[in-house]
Design a binder for these strands. Structure first.
Lengths: 337, 337
DNA sequence: TTTATTTACGAAAGCGGTTTCGTAATAACC
DNA sequence: GGTTATTACGAAACCGCTTTCGTAAATAAA
C-alpha cells in the first residue's frame, strides 16, 4: 500500500527531485555514480514511476488503442496478436475496444480517445459506420490513426486491407466452374467498402461467366445468429434455393453448416460452400470448409508498424497509403472436386 | 490539433478554473445556470478533459487490466466479452495483455501495473507461473486482483473457476463406459492447479473404474503446435496407442484431429476424443466433437463484477472467495454411442 | 594564471486537472 | 434587524513527474 514517489526517493538519497528523475531516465546530465546510487535505491524501495504523472509530463502514454467490432473471430484475434507483437517490442501498451458492430459505441470510444488516453489508434469500423466525423475529429486533435481490414476510403490516412474484390471474384468463379447456377452471397453490411468490394467481386464474376443476377442473390445478415439462421433457412427452403453460397464473414460459415444440417441439405452435393474464414478448424469440419483466409497476423503487424512509425515522428500524421496484403484461397471438400 | 484545456474554457467563460472543473463534474457547489453555460461552451469548443491530468488528480484512471495467456482461444475471447460488458457499463476501460504463456512477460506486465496504470486486475496466469511474488507485490500496492480460470490458490483473493475436477472425472468416466481401455490425457501445464485438477479428475475416474494408470497416460503439450503434433503422432504410433483422448485445452482438439487424419485413425472407431473446448465449430467438425465447455462469458462477467465492486469500496481489497461456475458436457460423435 | 567550457546538479515552472478552504452574497432564523 | 446558514464561486495547494534554466565546481584552452 506504500506507494513510493520520486520525492521520497530524492529525500532518501539527499538529492533533488530533478536529479532523481533524470537519473532514472538515464539522462546524460547525470554522472554514472549517481545513476547507480539512484537505481539501486529505486530497486530497493521498489519504486515504479506513476504512469499518469509521467504521461502528463511528457504528453504521451505509450499506449495505442485498437478498435474492432468483435474479438470472438479468428481474424480479429489473430490481428491482435500481430498488433501486440510489434507494440510490445516498441514498449507500447495496447487497449482493446469492442464496438460490437455498434456505430454509437464506436463514436463514444473515439470521442473518449480525444482525452489523450491513447497516442494512436488502429481502427476497423463497425458494420454500421457511415458517418466519419468522429474519426476526423480525433485525427484533427493530432492522434494518428491507421485503418485495417474495414476501412473508410474517404479518410486521408494509411489503410491496410486485403484483396477482397479479387478473392470474392475468384471464389465465385470457382463455384461457377464447379457447376453452381444460383449462388447466394451472405453480406454483413451494405455500407462498408470491404463488404461492397466482396459483393462486387461476387457480381462481376457472375457477369463475366454469363450469369444474370437478381436481388435474391444477396442476403444481408444482421448481427444476430438466431435471426441470421432463420433468414438463411427460409431462403434455402424457397423454390429458388441456392446451390452455392459465399459467406463474407467467418461465423456465417457455421450458420450455413447449421442450416444445411437442419434442412438435410448435403454439402457439397446440394449446396457448395465457400467462406471467408481464418478459422483453424476449417479443415476439420464436416465437410472440410473451402475458405478465403486473410493474412490476419500480417495485417495487424503491418498496421501497428506503420502507426509506430508515425508515433515516432514529431508530426505524427500518417500518410495516405493503401497497403494490400493478399489472402489465400484454400480448396477443401465443401466444394466439388 | 488545438487541444483545448480547462483554463482556456475558464478564460472564455470568465470563470475560475475550479468553477469550471466543478461544473463539468456536476458538483453541487455550482448553480444550474453556470453548469449550463459551462457545458454549452464545452460542447461548442469540443472540450474533452485530459485523461492523465484527471487521473493524476483523482488517483484512478477508470481502467482495468486483463492479463491472459492468449486471445486466439474461444474461452478467453468469450471471457473478454463478459468482462467488457460489465466494465463498459460501469464506465471502465479495459486493457488486454497477452502473456503468450510466458512467465517473464507476466512478471513484466504486473510490474508495470504498479505504476498505477490500472485500477484493478483480472488475471489468468500463464502455464509457467509458479512463483507469485509479482502478484503479491502488486496487491501490496493496493491494486485489487481477481483470478479467473487459471488461478493461484495460495493467494488471498477472489477466484472464479469452473468445476474442472468434476468435468474431467465425468469425461473420463464417459470414455471408459464407452469402452476405452487406454486413455491419454493432454495436459498444458504441470504447475497450474487448474491443470492438476483436470488431471486428478482424469486419474480418479480411472481408479474408480478399476483401471491402472501408468506414466504413458499423460502427454504434456508445449506451447508449440508443430511439436505438439509430432509428440501426439509419435504416441499414437507406439504399440500402447491410446483408444481414447481427453484434451485439456481447446486447440489440442484440433491437433488430435490432425494427427488422426494423418495416421488414418478413425474417430471414434479407433480413438474416441473429448476436448475441453468453447468452440462454436465443435458441432460441425468431422466428426462432431464431444466437449466440456466452460461458462466463459459468465466467468468473465462474474470476475469483472467482483472487481468492480472492490473498486467501488474505499479499501479496494477483494475477499478470499472461491466462485465455481459449472461447465457443460456435450456428447457428440467423437465418442461412441 | 586567466578565461572559456564542460559537467553535475538543484530550483522552479509547468503538464491539466482535482480538491480544500476561504469568503462574499443571499436566504433563513428568532 | 441582527445573527446564523446556505449558496456559489475563486485562490491556491496538490497529484507526481518532466523539463527548462541557472549555477557552482571541475576541466580545458589560451
Amino acid at each position: 500500500m506504500n506507494k513510493i514517489t520520486i520525492s521520497m526517493l530524492a529525500k532518501e538519497l539527499r538529492l533533488s527531485i530533478s536529479t532523481v528523475s533524470k537519473a532514472i531516465n538515464d539522462s546524460h546530465e547525470i554522472s554514472p555514480q549517481t545513476k547507480l546510487r539512484v537505481n539501486k535505491m529505486a530497486k530497493e524501495l521498489n519504486y515504479v514511476p506513476n504512469h499518469f504523472a509521467s504521461s502528463l509530463g511528457t504528453g504521451n502514454g505509450k499506449t495505442i488503442g485498437v478498435v474492432i467490432p468483435e474479438v470472438v473471430d479468428s481474424f480479429f484475434a489473430q490481428a491482435i496478436n500481430g498488433i501486440e507483437a510489434v507494440a510490445v517490442e516498441k514498449g507500447y501498451h495496447v487497449m482493446i475496444y469492442l464496438t460490437h458492430e455498434s456505430f454509437e459505441k464506436e463514436k463514444m470510444i473515439l470521442k473518449d480517445f480525444e482525452s489523450g488516453r491513447v497516442d494512436g489508434v488502429l481502427l476497423s469500423v463497425s458494420r454500421e459506420t457511415i458517418q466519419t466525423t468522429h474519426i476526423v475529429d480525433l485525427m484533427k486533435k493530432g492522434v494518428p490513426l491507421v485503418f485495417f481490414d474495414r476501412v473508410i476510403n474517404e479518410i486521408f490516412t494509411t489503410k491496410i486491407t486485403t484483396n477482397d474484390y479479387e478473392m470474392a471474384y475468384q471464389a465465385t468463379t470457382y463455384l461457377i466452374k464447379k457447376g453452381c447456377k444460383k449462388i447466394l452471397f451472405l453480406s454483413f453490411s451494405n455500407l462498408l467498402s470491404i463488404s461492397n468490394k466482396r459483393l462486387n467481386g461476387f457480381k462481376d464474376a457472375q457477369k463475366d461467366q454469363g450469369i444474370k443476377l437478381n436481388n435474391q442473390n444477396v442476403l444481408l445478415f444482421k448481427n444476430d445468429p438466431k435471426k441470421d439462421y432463420q433468414l438463411l433457412k427460409n431462403h434455402l427452403n424457397s423454390r429458388n434455393q441456392a446451390d452455392g453460397i459465399l459467406a463474407s464473414v467467418e461465423k456465417f460459415g457455421f450458420t450455413i453448416y447449421q442450416a444445411c444440417e437442419a434442412l438435410r441439405l448435403r454439402i457439397p452435393e446440394d449446396v457448395q460452400v465457400i467462406s471467408f474464414s481464418n478459422h483453424d478448424a476449417a479443415s476439420f469440419m464436416n465437410p472440410p470448409l473451402t475458405t478465403v483466409s486473410q493474412p490476419a497476423f500480417e495485417m495487424g503487424k503491418t498496421a501497428a508498424t506503420i502507426l509506430m512509425k508515425a508515433l515516432g515522428r514529431k508530426n505524427a500524421a500518417t500518410d495516405e497509403d493503401n497497403i494490400i496484403l493478399p489472402s489465400t484461397f484454400a480448396v477443401r471438400k465443401s466444394t466439388r472436386v
